[in-house]
Structures are given as structure tokens and as C-alpha cells.
Amino acid sequence: MNIFRFAGDMMHLTSILVLLLKIYATKSCSGISLKTQELYALVFLARYLDLFTDFISVYNTIMKLVFIVSSTAIVWCMKRDRVVRRSYDKQLDTFRHYFLLAASFALALLVNEKFTFQEIFWAFSIYLEAVAILPQLVLLQRSGNVDNLTGQYVFFLGAYRAFYILNWIYRYFTETHFSRWIACISGLVQTALYADFFYYYYISWKNNTKLKLPA
């Protein structure tokens, strides 16, 4: 574990806490893409198949459980909770995320660390996570002004993988045979997708204006 990865995990956790706060405090999920939340739930379920077979550390196990439980709870809440689901922007959240699923799985079959069930699902989760934010970014562009909590949610979600890139650079230089090319390249793509969001987020923060993504 290094400071970059720990900071990244804490930002990831923060993004989930901010999203939970928004949904439970405002009893609303307006501006949140259910499709992105469904993709994230799949990312964690596919990535943590080793939850009960490979014990890394208490921290690792607890965080995996937190990510799985929170992501499925958010999907459940947006689909089933009578109050919350009324505020879901169904007509705006129209990104065809099944293509992202299919493309990620196809790529995982071709590019993986080992052609085993667990490794293919691990690579699938890495590729899927890189593109999972797309429905959310499209929804933000369509829904015009973005409320603060939603903006902070997306910001922390983007920042966490940027810290993981620093973590990979650090591990590359400090560990002899460190090679996580699948995660590294996918993480770079993932962070790049947030580039324009980060730009407009910075502008809104600098000018102290409402965050607005151009359509």
C-alpha cells in the first residue's frame, strides 16, 4: 500500500458517501444516471470474485464489501424506493450502456492476464469501469445545471483513478517486476474521459458559478 493508492481509495469511498448523502438527504436521484450505477455494481461484482478465495488484508476485504454493498444498494434504491425513483431522469438517461458491457467483455476475452474465468472477469471489470461513467457524463450534459453533490460525486470518482495512476507510477519505480498494463492503460483512458468535466468543474469553482456542462 502507498499513499497514492490509499488517497485514491479514500476518494473513491468519498464519492460513494457523497452519492449516498445526496440520495438519502435530498431523497432524490435527479441528475444521477442509473445506468452508470448499474455498470459500477457490475464492475465490483465482476472484480471481487476473489473476495472469499484470496485474502489480501482486512482493509482490502472490508473495502470490497463496502463497494459491493453500496453500489448494489444505490441501484436498488434508484429502482425500488418509491420516493427516490420518482426523481430519476429516465427520459434523459438513455445511453445504450449494453454496448459498453458487450465491448468490455469482448475485449476481456481477447486481452487478459490469463485465460481463466476469474482473470477474464477481472479484465472485464477494469475495461467496464473505464467507460462506466459515460452515461453519467451524457446525463449531466443533457440535464444542464448540475447540483453540488452530483458535481462532487463525479469529481471524486474521476480523481480517485488519477491517484491510482500515480500509484502505478510509484510501484513501477519501487517494485522490481511490477506490470499492471491492463489496469494502467484502462485507468489512463478512464481519467481522460473526465478531462472536460474537470475543466468545467475547475471553471465553475474558480468563478464560483454553477457547474454547467455544454451540451
Binding site: 493508492r5 472484480r47 476473489d50 489480501i56 491510482y164 517486476h177
Partner: peptide, 10 residues
């Protein structure tokens, strides 16, 4: 080695 086979990152 077996160790590095495991994905130790979240």
C-alpha cells in the same frame, strides 16, 4: 510467483 498473481488493488 503466486503472490503477484493476486490482484492486491481494489
Amino acid at each position: 510467483t503466486e503472490e503477484e498473481e493476486k490482484h492486491d488493488e481494489l
